[in-house]
Nucleic acid binder design. Structure first.
Lengths: 152, 152
DNA sequence: CGGACTTTGACCTTTCCTGACCTTCATATA
DNA sequence: TATATGAAGGTCAGGAAAGGTCAAAGTCCG
């Protein structure tokens, strides 16, 4: 018997596929009711199964007419992305990061404008945070930005 | 179904576009009647959706012949950049930053890819730093990225 | 047994919408 | 002219309806 988390994960992916779209909008409380669990269980599923790393974007709004939106990123370059994720890891230096950008630019996956933006975001002068932390923030940002870019 | 706020927001923007001008004048009470809501709802929409960050100016007059005037700001790049630098300051919330991105995207200064990248870089989920610092890092990154993008 | 993963629930924050009450202004009128 | 009046718009607090957070408790598996 699959765990609750897996059931919800499956159901959401099913909906995503069935709707033939890459966007799914749900109500947290309704979904929770459907699976007879607490609403925060939905957050757990989203946090562990629908991460940027796995190719999903999650947006939400609170309050009246609130919602949760799950967006499946189209990854036409899965192996490249996998490679990127691996080479970035949990922490990365500015030099390493710049090498990656260079490489991607050479491959034509990044235009000049885009490269400049990424470059700005990973620069130590702009991050201005002390060192163990800085490389970790840079890694997270770089991964998220590249996924946003390359995942359709 | 969109929220009342969204409906009113849409209607106003529609009018702005349709009139082919950058100025729209309305009567608060009439608009409220049209949408069957209290007049202060209109203020709510104006305060949250037609801010300077999003590129709008709102003027009004009370009393007899009172009115509300919505002006869509049209500025050239250097002006925009100056305004951006000022409004970002040394620290900025995710919401404010998103308003700016929305504004720039609407102006056509940011395409969808670019907007997604910037969005990723300012997201609290990706920054993952505690709060006073997070807003400061976001401000620095946003300024640097916009400069890289628009400053040429 | 111990660590990793799940599940739960109490409490928090954000967003939207309303209504009571306040301020301002053009104009009619004394 | 001075003032009264009614017709605007403005403010603010409160309530309801979402979703978010976090830590404790439970489960599973090596």
């Amino acid at each position: 018997m699959p765990s609750l988390t897996e059931q919800i994960e499956c159901w959401l992916k099913e909906q995503l596929i069935r709707s033939r779209e890459n966007i799914l909008e749900i109500k947290r409380s309704e979904l929770a009711q459907e699976f007879d669990c607490v609403p925060s269980q939905v957050n757990y599923v989203l946090e562990t199964r629908f991460t940027v790393e796995r190719g999903y974007l999650v947006q939400s709004r609170r309050g009246g007419r609130g919602f949760i939106r799950i967006i499946k990123l189209q990854m036409d370059l899965p192996e490249q992305l996998q490679l990127l994720r691996d080479s970035i890891g949990a922490s990365i230096s500015q030099g390493q990061a710049e090498n990656i950008l260079l490489h991607l630019a050479e491959e034509g996956l990044l235009n000049r404008r885009e490269k400049r933006v990424l470059q700005a975001a990973i620069s130590r002068d702009n991050l201005k945070v002390a060192l163990p932390l800085r490389d970790m923030i840079r890694a997270r940002l770089l991964k998220a930005m590249l996924l946003a870019l390359l995942g359709e």
